[in-house]
Nucleic acid binder design. Structure first.
Length: 623
DNA sequence: GTAGGGTTAG
């Protein structure tokens, strides 16, 4: 039986990796163990393997895996049984034999899963796995699909550079990178919000003379939608048609969702209606299509229309799914219709669907917003009773809910509990806690929390740094804020507009007008500024009593109105407050009239507190 | 491979 192992297919591996060169005609000790192991595996007598597994050598393992290459289920079972043993850890190439076997069986999910384990639990680098895959190619049937699977394993574990490294290396070694692999990587870039890099990689791919397939085109549509470039997205669609590529419902859904998020619901509806015509009768709307529209209308508060779409959906024989209900329920909740939301949830249950964590999360969130702590407690215990596992959203919602209802300490305790139970936590949750700690002037607590993130291997994101910076700015600790800013830049995180605005606000509050101006000039140079920037600086001028400068800035905002910098009700409040403190009622009234003519509407609070009394005063004077 | 729920600025 050993002779079979010397087929041309296997020889390569033996020559390279195994100590088979003893040239002995008598079977070695390893041979004897090998055949015993194989017999026991065939008979599924695991006890023998279990006893032996800690002493299996690399070469023996490779031989065993090769032996069972053509019985992938058995192979997988063997691998799983000895997976925790050190031998497996040392023997990346034998693991790759299993991966190849899975790919040969078209069991890609298992292959991806195995490689994720190699990288996540066993700590191999993507390029090490790649090398081992290439080395074992000669003993396994060559299939490029293993590379696709490796790239998928990388993107699924968030190893962006790992995935890109594999693509680069494959190209260098003259292996073919499939369009699927490129698409997978491009899709990953979009998922993590790297739209700029998406376009770079796309251009790179095109420069190697690849042809886009329908999935690539869909990704282009998605990317343009992310950038709110709807007309470009639609033109991609037509470019695809011209190439003779048959569109699918996914591309349409991306367009429709894009239109919804760009607030163009009319276009979204038009696309839904024209789907058939635009695709030559091939594509018709599915549940996702309707869900996108329902979501669009729910977010706009147009619940009646959302409900009509649900009815239409049923009429067209498209079955509403859990997401349909989740979207509608959230829509009702965010518009204050708690009763309706509960009723809808009941309908859903009656139709045979079981509420999931998303639905519970919506309820919990909005009940917290209403301050209904008792209701939340009931819902959470109901969730536990039904064995619905809370996810990281649930945790964040609870933390934020506790904080917003004034129980910051409870939220911190809740967080400690999560840590203790080793439950999911993420930067998001920390951002909430850091924010609320800062709000109650506990910047040192916030800092501790930030440090604890590093200890537990959680990477603070832009928002974490932004929240810390804002906290220090609000506390008037501008130097510390600046230090956090430098730390952030040091770890390669780019500051964003929110962070600049926070810093600016801090400078304005301490009336460092020169610094503020300097910062704003810098922001303008890199084209990172918005209405908040102007309003903040305006507030700074007013605080410093620089009314002339304030008005000049106000005028320039009017001029720049086309750039989304038109004065808004915050501008209004800032100026009006400042002017009324300085006692010049007539200016206030003039400004008020002007802004109202410009379509700026004061919020009622401002109006009641400031404008209304002044107008009354003036009215008295004229009596 | 598209759809739902949670952070940040005046």
């Amino acid at each position: 039986m050993f002779l079979g192992l010397f087929s041309s297919k296997s020889r390569n591996l033996f020559v390279r990796g195994l100590h088979f060169a003893k040239q002995s005609t008598r079977p070695s000790a390893e041979d004897i163990i090998f055949s015993a192991v194989c017999v026991n595996i065939r008979q599924k007598k695991w006890k023998f393997l279990d006893q032996l597994s800690s002493s299996l050598t690399n070469s023996l393992l490779s031989r065993v895996f090769l032996e069972f290459q053509s019985s992938p289920q058995l192979l997988l079972e063997v691998y799983r049984r000895i997976g925790g043993q050190k031998a497996i850890l040392d023997s990346l190439e034998s693991c790759c034999i299993v991966v190849h076997a899975m790919v040969d069986q078209r069991n890609y999910d298992e292959a991806v899963c195995l490689m994720k384990e190699l990288m996540m639990s066993k700590g191999y680098l993507s390029l090490e796995v790649l090398e081992a895959l290439i080395n074992s190619l000669s003993v396994c049937s060559p299939s490029n699909a293993v590379f696709d699977a490796l790239i998928r394993a990388c993107t699924q574990t968030g190893a962006t550079e790992g995935a890109y490294g594999v693509i680069k290396k494959l190209r260098m070694e003259n292996y073919w990178v499939s369009i699927h692999a490129w698409n997978n990587f491009l899709n990953h870039l979009l998922k993590i919000g790297e739209v700029r890099r998406f376009w770079m990689v796309y251009r790179e791919m095109i420069s190697y003379e690849y042809y886009e397939n329908v999935n690539t085109f869909n990704l282009l549509i998605y990317a343009f939608c992310e950038e709110c470039k709807l007309s470009e997205a639609i033109s991609v669609f037509y470019r695809m048609l011209k190439r003779g590529i048959v569109p699918n419902v996914i591309g349409f859904n991306m367009l429709i969702n894009g239109a919804c998020s760009a607030d163009d619901l009319d276009l979204a509806v038009k696309l839904l209606e024209k789907m058939g015509a635009m695709s030559g009768g091939i594509v018709s709307p599915n549940a996702v299509t309707y869900n996108c529209l329902i979501n669009g209308y729910c977010k706009k508060g147009k619940l009646e229309i959302a409900k009509r779409i649900l009815a239409k959906m049923i009429e067209m024989d498209v079955k509403p799914n859990i997401r349909t209900y989740a979207t509608l329920i959230d829509g009702y909740l965010r518009n204050g219709y708690l009763e309706e939301a509960f009723r809808l949830c009941n309908n859903m249950v009656e139709s045979g669907l079981i509420p999931n964590a998303v639905i519970y999360n919506s309820f919990v969130h909005w009940l917290y917003v209403e301050g209904d702590i008792g209701g939340v407690a009931l819902l959470l215990s109901d969730m536990m009773l039904k064995y619905i596992t809370p996810d990281r959203f649930t945790h964040s919602i609870i933390a934020k809910g506790l904080c917003r209802n004034g129980h910051v300490n409870e939220a911190i305790k809740f967080h400690s509990w999560l840590v203790e139970k080793n439950l999911m936590e993420d930067a998001f949750l920390h951002n909430i806690l850091i924010n609320y700690l800062c709000r109650i002037n506990n910047t040192s607590g916030a800092k501790q929390l930030l440090c604890s993130m590093f200890v537990r291997g959680l990477i603070p994101d832009q928002v974490t740094y932004g929240t810390m910076i804002n906290g220090y700015c609000k506390a008037g600790e501008m130097e510390t804020a600046a230090k956090v800013y430098t730390d952030m830049v040091k770890v390669g995180k780019n500051p964003n507009l929110v962070i600049f605005n926070s810093l600016l606000d801090g400078l304005c509050k301490e009336e460092s007008i020169d610094c503020s101006r300097f910062l704003v000039d810098g922001m303008k140079r890199i084209n990172m500024y918005d209405a908040v920037t102007y309003n903040t600086l305006l507030d700074g001028y007013c605080r410093a009593g620089m009314i002339k400068e304030a008005f000049e800035l106000f005028t320039s905002m009017r001029k720049a109105g086309f750039l989304d910098l038109a004065p808004d009700f915050i501008t209004y409040t800032t100026l009006v407050t400042s002017l009324s403190n300085k006692g010049s009622s007539e200016e206030v009234v003039k400004l008020h009239d002007y802004l109202v003519l410009q379509g700026v509407i004061p919020d009622s609070q401002t109006y009641e507190a400031i404008v209304s009394p002044i107008i009354k005063d003036l009215a008295h004077e004229f009596e």
